[in-house]
């Protein structure tokens, strides 16, 4: 059932509407609810395929649905439709506007409507796709403030990595922080790369979502297996590689690969001269869980994130 989450008139013959599709059994279900949210950033599209697959599987197996599934594929519909990361017209990152304000500006109002609509969910997944520059292995990021509540859920989500990060004041304006503060467990998923679809990752996360639904008694038991993720809680375990010079980055390793100290992760080259300006190598053994996709780099551009100590159970 298509439902409207927020609705505002735009100046020229158009209505801005945030929509969701609600799936629930004919009898109304058992009252349990999962919400799958994506598209806060208009250039992150991996979640579209996940929403599609979740909807398709429910449509094909309606008898298994015990509770409510709300799918929100486009929290920032104008952004998705105009290949814009933020909210077009405002150049604002929507994920820095939560919890918003009902009586506030357009952006604040939209944020408040989304938050209000999600309240009551037993679990919310907020699916992101990094950005157009970086590719990520499927992972869940957890603010240490909400670790205790979220970790057991994250372990069941069929991702490869759970990354617990320190509390950061700026992140208090994210959807996930707002929802977790309101008592709605919300997992932030990062996977793939901006402006692209990675079907294997969509399959993997969809599997995890149905497993979680099963655990929450929203989906009739189906024995859905999930992988055991690597958990990183120590910030010193993650090494960041940043470009030391401006140029064109060519990667030599793919994300998810295990690296030995000294392995070449990529090079920065100069197309004018034919010179390799720098070779970037792994500072130690580790697991490459983020790698740069977009070739143009400035000095300082993020190239890779490497998790120290090769995990035995990833992949």
């Amino acid at each position: 059932m298509m439902m409207t989450v927020a609705c505002l008139p735009l100046p020229v013959d158009e209505t801005l509407e945030i929509k969701k599709n609600r799936f629930c059994p004919g009898n109304g279900g058992n009252g349990r609810r999962i919400s799958v949210v994506t598209g806060i950033h208009g250039d992150e599209l991996e979640g579209q395929l996940v929403c599609f697959q979740v909807a398709k599987r429910i449509r094909e197996n309606p008898e298994r649905l015990l509770g409510t599934v709300d799918l929100y594929p486009a929290i920032n519909p104008l952004g998705i439709d105009s290949v814009t990361r933020g909210i077009p017209g405002f150049d604002l990152d929507m994920n820095r506007t939560f919890p918003g304000a009902m009586e506030g500006s357009l952006t604040e109002h939209l944020a408040a409507c989304v938050v209000q609509d999600l309240v009551g969910s037993d679990l919310c997944l907020d699916i992101h796709a990094s950005n157009i520059y970086l590719t990520e292995i499927p992972q869940i990021r957890i603010n240490e403030l909400h670790r205790e509540k979220l970790m057991p859920l994250a372990m069941e989500a069929n991702v490869d990595l759970i990354w617990v990060h320190g509390a950061n004041t700026v992140l208090e304006s994210t959807l996930a922080h707002s929802m977790n503060s309101l008592g709605v467990p919300t997992l932030v998923v990062e996977m793939g790369v901006g402006m692209r679809l990675t079907p294997a990752y969509a399959d993997q996360l969809t599997q995890g979502i149905f497993h979680l639904m099963e655990r929450l008694r929203i989906w009739k038991e189906e024995e859905i297996p999930v992988r055991t993720p690597v958990v990183s809680e120590d910030p010193d375990e993650v090494t960041y590689l940043n470009a030391p010079v401006s140029g064109i980055f060519q990667k030599k390793k793919n994300h998810g690969e295990h690296l030995k100290k000294g392995d070449e992760v990529g090079i920065v080259l100069n197309p004018y001269t034919g010179e390799v300006l720098t070779s970037m190598t792994a500072p130690g053994d580790g697991w490459l869980f983020t790698i740069r996709e977009y070739p143009v780099v400035d000095e300082g551009s993020l190239i890779a994130r490497i998790l120290r100590e090769p995990p035995g159970c990833a992949g």
């Binding site: 960041y240 940043n242 143009v296 780099v297 400035d298 000095e299 300082g300 551009s301």
Partner: peptide, 26 residues
Amino acid sequence: KRFWPTDNSDINRMFPGYSLGETTQR
């Protein structure tokens, strides 16, 4: 262009900065 040319980040959201970090942090 309002924000940083290559990644659209805002320098006034990067203080106090990080000299080993990303471009606008630097």
